[in-house]
């Protein structure tokens, strides 16, 4: 059947992309000059202020090689590496030794996912609605005002936007906490409410930063689409503005926007590093920054592979859902 063939093809492509990405992350650091073990040993020696005995050095070298997965020749290493990736075993974190990297990432993931999925979806919905209305009624003066919202918000650098929001809503009008405090313990109604309350400021800055682009993109698409012959004919059919705006202009103009949405969802596990650092939000971005600062290679590896996985998965999901929105792909031409 055609559908099954389509799905299988996409899935094979997906596995291939994952494999290539994971392979590149294995080989790339090994092409760099220097050796992480030597680096580490010289750091230890420098800190100790004296040279270690040859025996102690060799012992340290062996245990580090085991820890980093650097035993044996490069093919053995590669095979072991692939086997560990499949088991989601990235070894222990150096900073939080002996906590396994996967546990740390699993702890951070819901925070990032919750914050970024919500804000990406909201800014897509709000931005595209405003853009659609601004584009569809582009000849009216009030619609221009809507577009100006996008033009003003889009170029503001995120950190400035975030600082302004903090100043405004956490300092001058102290409605929200400057940095979030999350209650420990199991999820209760109160805890959920407090999470939403504490996440409000970071979410607001992300929505404001994200939707300007959506407004501008959708506006441009809607202006072009509404001149298309089928929209003009729908007007001559006597259909209402509402019908034309939703069923004709939006149904067609949203297609590229759906691509953009799903792909940006794929990038959420890169974390919103700026957001998480500015608001001390315990997500992947914060974790990655700490790992990079502390030279925690295992944790960085884990985070990078998580990114590869989520981007590739987003692309797969896009391939699988796109035909639902565009019958020309679903049914061939």
């Amino acid at each position: 059947m055609k559908l099954a063939q389509y799905v299988v093809q996409r899935f094979i492509g997906y596995l291939l992309v994952l494999f290539i990405g994971i392979t590149i992350t294995f080989f790339l650091p090994r092409l760099m000059p220097g050796d992480p073990i030597n680096n580490y040993i010289s750091q230890v020696q420098a800190r100790a202020g004296q040279s270690l005995s040859a025996e102690a050095t060799q012992q340290l070298r062996d245990s580090l090689a085991e820890l980093y997965g650097l035993q044996g020749d490069i093919f053995t290493q590669y095979r072991n590496y692939l086997a560990r990736v499949v088991r989601l075993d990235f070894g222990p974190s150096f900073t939080y030794y002996p906590e396994p990297v996967s546990n740390i990432l699993l702890d951070a993931m819901p925070w990032t996912a919750g914050l970024l999925i919500t804000t990406t979806l909201l800014s897509w919905l709000i931005g595209n609605s405003i853009g659609l209305i601004a584009g569809y009624f582009n000849k009216r003066r009030w619609a221009t005002i809507l577009e100006v919202v996008g033009i003003i918000l889009y170029p503001i650098p995120y950190y400035i936007l975030a600082l302004v929001v903090i100043l405004l809503l956490a300092y001058w009008i102290a409605l929200f906490p400057l940095s979030p405090t999350f209650l420990p313990g199991p999820m209760t109604w109160n805890k959920a409410v407090s999470i939403i309350y504490n996440s409000f400021l970071p979410a607001l800055t992300l929505i404001l930063a994200g939707f300007g682009w959506n407004v501008l993109a959708m506006k441009a698409l809607a202006v072009a689409t509404k001149e298309d012959a089928y929209v003009q004919f729908a007007r001559l059919k006597g259909t209402t503005d509402r019908t034309r705006m939703t069923n004709y202009v939006f149904r067609n103009a949203m297609l590229p926007q759906i691509t953009a949405l799903v792909l940006s969802l794929g990038f959420i596990f890169n974390g919103a590093i700026q957001t998480e650092v500015i608001f001390s939000y315990p997500g992947i971005g914060m974790t990655m920054r700490a790992a990079a600062g502390a030279g925690d290679y295992n944790l960085l590896y884990g985070a990078i592979i998580l990114t590869i996985f989520s981007v590739a998965t987003a692309a797969l999901i896009l391939d699988l859902i796109y035909p639902l929105f565009d019958p020309r792909i679903r049914l061939g031409g």
């Binding site: 089928y230 004919f233 059919k237 069923n247 067609n252 019958p327």
Partner: peptide
């Protein structure tokens, strides 16, 4: 331009019944 006067992503039957 009858060739492009139908909405490409909506079934023809739905385009038959959106007249006022």
């Amino acid at each position: 331009s009858s060739m492009s006067s139908l909405n490409p992503v909506v079934r023809i039957r739905d385009q038959f019944v959106d007249f006022p």
